[in-house]
Amino acid sequence: TTLHFDLDGKKLQYTGVSEEIARLVEELKRRGVDLKEIVRILEELLK
């Protein structure tokens, strides 16, 4: 799965993300978590 974000005018793309992580990101968005925080979490998970 590939995730795309537009953060402060920067286009971020994460490829090869598992379905689980993609679902987690969608859930965080639904809960109103700040996009910067979501990206920070995502980068930690993908290390």
Score class of each variant (00 low, 15 high):
1 T>R: 11
1 T>S: 09
1 T>Y: 09
1 T>D: 09
1 T>A: 10
1 T>P: 07
1 T>G: 13
1 T>V: 15
1 T>N: 13
2 T>D: 15
2 T>V: 08
2 T>R: 03
2 T>A: 06
2 T>P: 02
2 T>I: 08
3 L>V: 08
3 L>P: 02
3 L>F: 02
3 L>T: 01
3 L>A: 00
3 L>K: 00
3 L>H: 03
3 L>S: 00
4 H>Y: 15
4 H>L: 10
4 H>R: 04
4 H>A: 06
4 H>M: 09
5 F>V: 05
5 F>A: 01
5 F>T: 01
5 F>C: 02
5 F>I: 09
5 F>Q: 01
5 F>N: 01
5 F>D: 02
5 F>S: 01
6 D>E: 15
6 D>W: 11
6 D>C: 07
7 L>G: 01
7 L>D: 04
7 L>Y: 07
7 L>W: 05
7 L>T: 02
7 L>K: 00
8 D>R: 00
8 D>I: 01
8 D>T: 02
8 D>L: 02
8 D>Q: 04
9 G>D: 06
9 G>Y: 01
9 G>H: 02
9 G>S: 03
9 G>V: 01
10 K>V: 14
10 K>S: 08
10 K>I: 14
10 K>C: 09
10 K>F: 07
10 K>N: 11
11 K>T: 11
11 K>D: 11
11 K>R: 08
11 K>E: 14
11 K>Y: 08
12 L>S: 04
12 L>W: 05
12 L>N: 02
13 Q>L: 11
13 Q>A: 11
13 Q>C: 08
13 Q>V: 15
13 Q>F: 11
13 Q>D: 08
13 Q>W: 10
14 Y>R: 00
14 Y>E: 00
14 Y>V: 04
14 Y>C: 02
14 Y>A: 01
14 Y>F: 14
14 Y>T: 00
14 Y>N: 00
14 Y>I: 04
15 T>M: 07
15 T>H: 14
15 T>F: 10
15 T>N: 11
15 T>K: 07
15 T>A: 10
15 T>I: 12
15 T>D: 13
15 T>V: 14
16 G>V: 03
16 G>P: 02
16 G>Q: 07
16 G>W: 03
16 G>K: 04
16 G>M: 05
16 G>T: 03
17 V>H: 00
17 V>S: 01
17 V>F: 01
17 V>Q: 01
18 S>W: 02
18 S>I: 05
18 S>V: 06
18 S>A: 07
18 S>Q: 05
19 E>K: 08
19 E>G: 07
19 E>N: 08
19 E>Y: 08
19 E>W: 09
19 E>M: 11
19 E>P: 12
19 E>S: 09
20 E>W: 06
20 E>C: 06
20 E>L: 05
20 E>F: 04
21 I>R: 02
21 I>F: 06
21 I>D: 08
21 I>Q: 10
21 I>N: 12
22 A>N: 06
22 A>C: 10
22 A>T: 09
22 A>F: 11
22 A>L: 12
22 A>H: 08
22 A>G: 08
22 A>P: 01
22 A>M: 10
22 A>W: 07
22 A>D: 03
23 R>D: 13
23 R>W: 08
23 R>F: 12
23 R>N: 15
23 R>L: 15
23 R>G: 13
23 R>H: 14
24 L>H: 15
24 L>M: 13
24 L>A: 14
24 L>C: 08
24 L>N: 13
25 V>P: 01
25 V>M: 06
25 V>H: 02
25 V>K: 00
25 V>N: 02
26 E>R: 06
26 E>K: 07
26 E>W: 07
26 E>Q: 12
26 E>F: 08
26 E>Y: 10
27 E>F: 07
27 E>W: 05
27 E>M: 07
27 E>S: 08
27 E>H: 12
27 E>Y: 06
27 E>I: 07
28 L>C: 03
28 L>M: 14
28 L>A: 08
28 L>R: 05
29 K>D: 11
29 K>A: 14
29 K>H: 14
29 K>F: 13
29 K>L: 14
30 R>W: 09
30 R>P: 03
30 R>T: 13
30 R>L: 15
30 R>F: 15
30 R>A: 15
30 R>C: 07
30 R>K: 14
31 R>W: 07
31 R>N: 15
31 R>F: 06
31 R>D: 13
31 R>M: 13
31 R>P: 02
32 G>D: 13
32 G>M: 14
32 G>C: 08
32 G>R: 07
33 V>D: 09
33 V>I: 11
33 V>P: 02
33 V>Y: 06
33 V>Q: 10
33 V>K: 07
34 D>V: 11
34 D>P: 15
34 D>L: 10
34 D>H: 10
34 D>T: 09
35 L>P: 12
35 L>H: 10
35 L>S: 09
35 L>V: 15
35 L>W: 02
36 K>M: 08
36 K>H: 14
36 K>L: 12
36 K>R: 15
36 K>N: 12
36 K>A: 12
36 K>V: 12
36 K>C: 06
36 K>P: 09
37 E>F: 06
37 E>R: 07
37 E>C: 07
37 E>V: 09
37 E>Y: 06
37 E>N: 07
38 I>T: 05
38 I>D: 00
38 I>E: 00
38 I>N: 00
38 I>C: 05
39 V>D: 00
39 V>E: 00
39 V>C: 03
39 V>I: 14
40 R>G: 13
40 R>Y: 09
40 R>N: 13
40 R>W: 10
40 R>T: 14
40 R>S: 12
40 R>F: 12
40 R>V: 10
40 R>Q: 14
41 I>R: 12
41 I>K: 09
41 I>Y: 08
41 I>A: 08
41 I>E: 10
41 I>T: 13
41 I>L: 13
42 L>V: 07
42 L>C: 04
42 L>R: 00
42 L>W: 00
42 L>G: 00
42 L>E: 00
43 E>W: 02
43 E>M: 04
43 E>S: 05
43 E>F: 03
43 E>T: 06
43 E>V: 06
43 E>R: 03
44 E>N: 08
44 E>T: 11
44 E>W: 09
44 E>Y: 10
44 E>S: 12
44 E>K: 09
44 E>P: 04
44 E>C: 07
45 L>Q: 11
45 L>A: 15
45 L>E: 12
45 L>G: 05
45 L>K: 14
46 L>G: 03
46 L>K: 03
46 L>I: 10
46 L>H: 05
46 L>R: 03
46 L>T: 05
46 L>M: 08
46 L>Q: 04
46 L>S: 03
47 K>T: 13
47 K>I: 11
47 K>R: 12
47 K>N: 14
47 K>Q: 14
47 K>M: 12
47 K>E: 11
